[in-house]
Design a protein around this nucleic acid. Structure first.
Lengths: 195, 195
DNA sequence: AGCTTAAAGCTAATACGAATAGCTAACCGG
DNA sequence: CCGGTTAGCTATTCGTATTAGCTTTAAGCT
């Protein structure tokens, strides 16, 4: 039997591709093994467990998402950057539903690598919002708001959650414009005095 | 052996309670059986499958969420209603993480009962936004925006996704205020001319 | 080249959860 | 009290993750 010449990264990559095809939660060791051309137990020479494989898919997906967002927003600032960020986010999610599902999974509390991959994506968002939205620590609030909104829309859309017959593109534009309007720095912070 | 006096609703209710304790995806037939005091196969006298149990939990959860939102917003209108809706939503999600995870699961396309349970929740949101936000069909955009934002925030928070040391309550207030500001009807619709 | 060795792959076996089959006994209506 | 319905049980099957232990490849060294 000739060797398949497999490496951990190849197994993870196959898992990520499979996730987009059959859904993240339906990725099994058996399916991945078939995809890479080995028997199921052989995968354990490259990944520790199904959970470890999922973690690997999540980290790879976060990096790919971060790359896509960074590419989409380079050289832009202000509302243009926010819009480009939002558009790239939605497109990436629609193109990679399984990978996106993987990114939602929260890292274990002590998993530095996984956490860093998520932080890197967040950093891009903070950069996009720098010089836009509220100044100082308020940027974190703005980033959380934008991230929540985009994540929520993406997750509802990819779950088929929008039943009504209204154009989803238009609703997305509305959402992004609403946030941009609301985020303009010349409005009260809303958080009030405390703290 | 005395009978346990079980009914389908009791099995579903036990599953919902368990979901909040161990996580929706970790609810198993075995755990539910132990909780209601029977052996695992006996559950199949009351629910068709694990998938059917999950569906039942989802429907029950959507109804409970709808009740909580309706109670919180009755008699209110305008920004007050939106704020009350948002606060009730977040509180309910934090109190019932497993049930909330169940509500995210999209219904099967032909599942009328499940779909209706979700629609009923959406209707409350539409009522809250009536007379606020953009008029006419734009209300749907506004509802999607608010729903996306609240869902995204809830899902990120309950997944532990906010790593930075900034008060999460404050970020939530900021998000809601940002949307209220952005949703005021005296702004352009953002969708542009094409129609 | 020939030897050694780490690791990649295999088959076989274990563990566990979902689901089914078929039996038994508890309740319900007469 | 009697018969039928059905909740619950034990035993079993099946699918998937995982482990154990063997075999063979391939790479490095002399």
């Amino acid at each position: 039997m000739p060797r398949a010449g497999l490496a951990p990264a190849a197994v993870v990559a196959a898992g990520a591709a499979l996730a987009d095809e059959v859904g993240f939660t339906n990725v099994s060791m058996g399916l991945v093994a078939e995809r890479v051309g080995v028997r199921t137990p052989s995968l354990y020479k490259h990944v520790d467990s199904l959970d470890a494989l999922r973690r690997g898919i999540a980290i790879q997906a976060k990096r790919e998402l971060g790359d896509a967002l960074a590419r989409a927003t380079v050289g832009l600032s202000g509302p243009d950057a926010v819009r480009a960020f939002a558009d790239a986010h939605r497109r990436w999610v629609l193109d990679h539903p399984g990978r996106y599902a993987a990114t939602i999974r929260a890292p274990e509390a002590d998993d530095e690598e996984d956490r860093r991959a998520g932080d890197d994506v967040l950093r891009i968002l903070l950069d996009v919002l720098a010089g836009f939205g509220p100044p100082g620590a308020g940027t974190i609030d703005a980033a959380r708001a934008l991230r929540s909104a985009l994540h929520g829309f993406a997750s509802l859309e990819s779950a088929g959650g929008f039943g009504l017959p209204r154009d989803v593109d238009r609703s997305y534009r509305f959402l992004v414009d609403t946030l941009i309007t609301g985020l303009r720095p010349d409005r009260p912070t809303g958080a009030g005095g405390a703290g």
